[in-house]
Amino acid sequence: MGTNRKEEIILTTLELAAEKGLAGVSMSMIADKIGIKKPSLYKHFSSKDEIVEAMYQFLRDKSKENANIKPVDYSILFSEKTAYEVLKGVMQGYINMNHQEQMLTFYKVIYSERSIQPMAARIVAEETERMIIATKQLFYAMEVHKLLHFENADMSAVSFAMTVHGLMDYELDQKYGYDEAPKNLLDEYLKWFCEQNYVEAGD
C-alpha cells in the first residue's frame, strides 16, 4: 500500500505540475486531488521538492524498464557493429527512454522552470552529468575495442554529450513548434563524429 500510495502521489503531482507549473502546486492541492488529508501526505514525503526528486527517479527507472535498457555488456554491444551503428543504437535507447509520455511531461515541466526553480535546474544538471559519465565510459570502451580513436576521450565525451543533448532539444522544439518533420541533424552529427574519430590502420 505504501509503495502504491507513493506512486499515486508522484503521478498526481506530475499531472498538477503539467497543468499549473511546479510553483503553482501545493501540498494541500496534491492531498485534495488524491482525496487524503495533508498530514497523510507528509507521512510519505516531507516536501514538494522531495516529491519531485522521487518523481525523477521513479520515472527514470520506469522509462528504462519500458525501453528495455539494461546494464551494458560492451562486447555484446559492439559485436559486428560499426562505430556509427553503436552510437546510433545507444542514442536511440536514450531517446526511447526520455520520450515516453510521462517522462516527456516531466521534462517539459522541469525545463520550463529551471530558471526559477533551483530543484528543476538541479535535475536538469544531474541528467546532463549522467549522460556525460555514460558517454565517457562508452568512449573508453570504444577506444579499447578500436572502434573509434580520441585525442582526449574525456573532452570528446563532454562535447558529444552536450551536442547530442542540444540536438535532441532542438528536434523536440521543432516537433512542437512546427508542423513540418524535424531536420535529422542528430543522425548527420553521428556520421560526422565517427568520420572525425575513425581508427586509422595500425592505430
Score class of each variant (00 low, 15 high):
Phe58Gly: 00
Glu53Trp: 09
Ala31Leu: 02
Met29Ile: 06
Met27Trp: 00
Ala125Trp: 01
Glu129Gly: 07
Leu167Lys: 08
Asn68Trp: 09
Val158Lys: 08
His165Pro: 01
Leu186Asn: 05
Asp187Val: 05
Lys64Ala: 15
Leu87His: 09
Val124Asn: 03
Val52Asp: 04
Gly93Pro: 05
Lys20Tyr: 15
Met142Ser: 01
Lys88Ser: 15
Thr13Pro: 01
Thr82His: 08
Met91Pro: 00
Asp61Pro: 00
Gln102Met: 11
Gly177Trp: 03
Thr3Trp: 10
Tyr107His: 15
Phe160Met: 10
Tyr189Leu: 04
Asp203Val: 07
Ala67Pro: 00
Ile34Trp: 02
Ser75Pro: 00
Met55Val: 01
Ser79Phe: 11
Ser47Glu: 05
Ala17Trp: 06
Gln102Trp: 09
Met155His: 11
Leu59Met: 05
Lys136Asn: 04
His145Phe: 13
Met103Trp: 02
Lys70Arg: 13
Met131Ala: 14
Ser63Phe: 09
Ala17Arg: 08
Phe193Asp: 03
Met55Leu: 10
Gln196Ser: 06
Pro71Asp: 13
Asp187Pro: 02
Asp187Trp: 01
Ser47Leu: 01
Tyr140Pro: 00
Met168Ala: 13
Ala181Lys: 15
Cys194Gly: 01
Ile51Asp: 04
Glu50Met: 06
Leu190Trp: 01
Thr128Ala: 14
Val124Gln: 11
Glu195Met: 11
Ile132Asn: 09
Pro118Ser: 05
Ser79Ile: 06
Tyr107Ser: 11
Val144Asp: 14
Phe160Leu: 11
Asp73Pro: 00
Gln196Asp: 04
Ser115Phe: 15
Gln117Ile: 10
Ser156Gln: 08
Lys136Phe: 06
Asp187Ile: 02
Glu129Tyr: 04
Ala18Ser: 13
Val199Met: 05
Pro182Cys: 05
Tyr170Glu: 14
Glu8Trp: 03
Met55Ile: 05
Leu77Val: 06
Tyr140Lys: 08
Leu22Phe: 11
Asn68Ala: 10
Phe139Ala: 03
Tyr56Phe: 14
Ala54Glu: 09
Asn152Lys: 07
Tyr42Asp: 05
Tyr74Met: 03
Lys33Ser: 08
Tyr140Thr: 12
Tyr84Gly: 07
Lys191Tyr: 11
His99Lys: 12
Ile34Glu: 04
Ile132Pro: 00
Ser28Pro: 00
His99Ser: 14
Ala23Lys: 14
Ala153Met: 09
Phe58Arg: 09
Ile133Glu: 07
Ala67Glu: 04
Thr12Phe: 05
Ala67Ser: 09
Leu138Ser: 00
